[in-house]
Design a protein around this nucleic acid. Sequence first.
DNA 1: ATTTTTGATTTGTGATCACACTTGTATTGA
DNA 2: TCAATACAAGTGTGATCACAAATCAAAAAT
Lengths: 245, 245
Amino acid sequence: MQKTGVEKNNDPIAAQLAPVGRETVQDRVYLELRRALVGGLFEPSQILTIRGLADALMTSTMPVREALGRLITEKALEALPNRSVRVPPITLDRMDDLLRARILIEGEAIALAATRIHPRQLSVIEGTLSEWDEMRALKHKKDVDREVTLNQSFHFEIYRACGSAVLIPMIESLWLQSGPCIRVAIYAFSEAGEVDTAHYHRSIVAALSRQDPEAAREALVADISRPFNFLRNKLQSEAASKGQS
Amino acid sequence: MQKTGVEKNNDPIAAQLAPVGRETVQDRVYLELRRALVGGLFEPSQILTIRGLADALMTSTMPVREALGRLITEKALEALPNRSVRVPPITLDRMDDLLRARILIEGEAIALAATRIHPRQLSVIEGTLSEWDEMRALKHKKDVDREVTLNQSFHFEIYRACGSAVLIPMIESLWLQSGPCIRVAIYAFSEAGEVDTAHYHRSIVAALSRQDPEAAREALVADISRPFNFLRNKLQSEAASKGQS
DNA sequence: ATTTTTGATTTGTGATCACACTTGTATTGA
DNA sequence: TCAATACAAGTGTGATCACAAATCAAAAAT
């Protein structure tokens, strides 16, 4: 028998055993920090220390410093000249920059996906949407974490259908970079009495099921622009009131 | 006097001293590996080992493993399930994927740059072009390394004019990923009697000086598509001749 | 009272070690 | 002769240590 790595075992006993998985500690740390970033658990301009994170995550410094290095190269974190690392601060210019890039790339991804998507995938996406509705009906608001997670899986389920191994990591990087902004915007939405977010998502799946690339792109642009525009208005009015004081 | 980090010294003696720079070993390793990748010093599918690179770069394993981790997250290298890392192999699908992404993003960057570029920057870019011509006139060919470097600075000098801190790192990542392909294509060009590459660059700067975004985008698309198309034809004919044997 | 200096603590970086897993090569068995 | 085993070398991962640079707090000097 050829012995290439782990051998496929067809014994009746072994068939019930799930593969044990061999993810490294570094991967877990990296994924956990990612989750925290897109979820907005860290505030903009907050400084992160290796040892502090290592204590919080109950590991040594080694996996943490490697995960931080990776996040810095994706621009999800920022390396200060002092050699300390912080989550990037929010500026108006940067927000516009991020939104423009997201419209360009995610718009292209969804336009590609519209032409290639399979009915099976589409039903999975619709399933995500109804799960979302259920949650929204039960616990009236408050669970922003779950909200963020569902929004994320909704979008990436679509992007995966574009079949580009190059675009998707770029979109992930963009979400990582705009995560802190989004969280601020979502909180602001919750306070301001939430607008109908579900409407945008329904028009996206409608365009997708019609296999209409440009309508899908348009609906997506409206969806991702909304929190950015909201946040921009908020920041501008804050800056104006601070300027006159 | 406030003492925030290194203090700015205005002594007549100190004024002549250039800042010494404090880049870490890890940064040097990272930049060196980057240079090697876009320059195509590594072959596709080649396996890289931490200790091997550390010996070659005359450092310990620590800076190398961190640099490798960063390159893996940018998809410039690939982590195999065996936990070994290799430079990604070239496939037709991946090439098309890369080219499509580059057309999308670099096209947008140059269209933005066309509307914002300053005459000073434009003259710098033209300077790069004439330096290129000189080199091409003197040593008839052969110096592909210098060729790659000049091509790189020509393009990125333009992209910097788009003023987007989000798009430029993405373009760098795309160049990193397509570096091995490009090198293969350039060598193939040299063998096949080089076509007029300078022509494409001249039409790019012409469109730029006219501040014509769409013409610039079009010229750029032609420029970056050329090596990909060449390589695709080459791979396809190779596959065909192998298929019939 | 304000500024400067001094010292202690914290922090990132690089090196080294221990361990587990993989890979390659010889050795043994049929 | 060929496959399977056993052993050895190689490799990635995580932990720990040493050191330099940065940060902060208290004490001293103006």
